[in-house]
């Protein structure tokens, strides 16, 4: 089973986590055009690569961001939303 590093609770098995979709910046609803907004809500870039994703540690109720390479399934870093990833916060050696 895959392991994930919750920034609050440490490394835990994947069964404790819920995937929350890709984390994307919401365009300003007041100033964005209909087209910009529609592409924000409807379009996903499914190309493999490094993605920012929402993950939820279910037992503790912690939402956080994981930067994951969806090609190799390697998690590069995890951090709370809005907190920039510290340098060298590489996942456990795996």
């Amino acid at each position: 089973m895959k392991l994930l590093n919750c920034p609050v609770n440490g490394v835990r098995p994947l069964s404790e986590f819920i995937f929350g979709g890709e984390c994307r910046e919401m365009p300003n609803p007041e100033t964005s055009t209909d087209l910009e907004w529609a592409s924000y809500v409807h379009y996903r870039d499914n190309a493999p690569g490094i993605k920012k994703e929402w993950w939820y540690h279910s037992p503790s109720g912690t939402w956080f961001i994981a930067e994951r390479n969806t090609l190799s399934d390697e998690v590069l870093s995890t951090y709370l939303h809005g907190k920039a990833p510290a340098k060298n916060t590489k996942e456990q050696s795996a």
């Binding site: 819920i18 929350g20 929402w54 939820y56 109720g61 939402w63 709370l80 939303h81 809005g82």
Partner: peptide
């Protein structure tokens, strides 16, 4: 409830959720 928690974190409002 999960969505409430997520949006509260994104909006950074001065509020707390108790389930």
């Amino acid at each position: 409830y999960r969505e409430m928690q997520r949006w509260l974190q994104v909006w950074k409002l001065n509020a707390t959720l108790i389930n």
